[in-house]
Design a protein around this nucleic acid. Structure first.
Length: 282
DNA sequence: ACAGATGTTGATGT
DNA sequence: TACATCAACATCTG
């Protein structure tokens, strides 16, 4: 599940692969991933957008990232990239492509997205591209300081709200709360100043830790890929001993519940008992 | 066989 | 305004 670290990894990879290169051919194998605007429904591609993509994707200038979005700037316009849930960019021969970019070096860059929740949105107007790029996004979770968290919603859901802070998904939010020792069901506005500093620090360490784990290679290993080991200490580890509080002499077991339709794992030793007013809105 | 879980964005509903 | 829920997807698990 691409969250901020995977997206940043992808941005760096695309930048490295296309440094000083020209795209000589754009091959659109599945036009559903080429969309008219950021607000278009996923998998609602258009012929017009495909034509625009072919026009824009020639001479790359640079890649920016905010949260989980990438803005790829070209001489003739920009591409807004989103990985959705299963989107990924790779280099080299590949099966089941959605889009292939052929480089003047002979390399081929491929966009894969079996579930079609990601996509490519081409813009000829750089200004419009930048507006769509940053629209409805809070400050970047890695580069900016964590904004004050307000409202009655559960703190994990607020961390995952891209308009509050951009880049955190289910796993990164959950692991950061665990590092900070804050229960995921705590109401956002119950987080005091000391806890906020702790959480802000935990978010940064969590994101940098995952980014480091992804390494320097070209291949991103996603958690849900078959055969890939689960690199996270909490995620999908219900019943296992918590590695964080064991050194403190405790032997807590990792717990699991459903929150907002998604799985949440947590440690009672590190994060305490659920708050008393733990509504099911949690 | 079939229901449900998976996770992100954005539209729609309260 | 603030918050909740569902649709769009494909693949795997119980």
């Amino acid at each position: 599940m691409p969250e901020l670290p995977e997206v940043e990894f992808c941005r760096r990879a695309l930048s490295r692969w296309t440094q000083g290169r020209t795209i000589t051919q754009v091959e659109i194998a599945d036009p559903r991933v080429v969309r008219d605007s950021r607000t278009a429904r996923p998998s609602a591609g258009s012929a017009l957008a495909a034509e625009c993509l072919r026009h824009v994707a020639r001479h790359p200038i640079g890649l920016d990232r905010v949260g989980k979005r990438i803005l790829w700037r070209f001489e003739a316009g920009s591409l807004l990239l989103h990985l959705g849930m299963t989107g990924r960019w790779t280099r080299g021969p590949s099966a089941f492509p959605k889009v292939r970019l052929h480089l003047d070096s002979g390399d081929v860059l491929t966009f894969h997205d079996p579930r079609l929740l990601g996509g490519i949105v081409p813009f000829e107007d750089g200004r419009a591209a930048h507006a769509a790029f940053t629209a409805d996004l809070g400050p970047d979770a890695l580069l900016a300081s964590l904004p004050r968290l307000t409202g009655k919603r559960a703190v994990k859901l607020v961390l995952m709200d891209q308009t509050v802070v951009a880049g955190l998904g289910n796993v990164q939010a959950m692991e950061a709360l665990w590092r900070a020792g804050i229960h995921p069901l705590r109401q956002a506005d119950s987080i005091d100043a000391v806890e906020h500093v702790r959480l802000s620090d935990a978010v940064k360490r969590q994101l940098l830790g995952t980014l480091t784990m992804l390494g320097e290679g070209d291949e991103v290993v996603y958690v849900e890929e078959r055969g890939a080991p689960n690199p996270f200490p909490l995620y999908q580890r219900a019943g296992e001993r918590c590695p964080q509080c064991a050194p403190a002499g405790r032997t807590s077991l990792i717990q699991h519940f459903r929150q907002g339709g998604r799985g949440t794992w947590w440690c009672p030793g590190c994060q305490g008992e659920p708050p008393r007013v733990a509504a099911d809105t949690g």
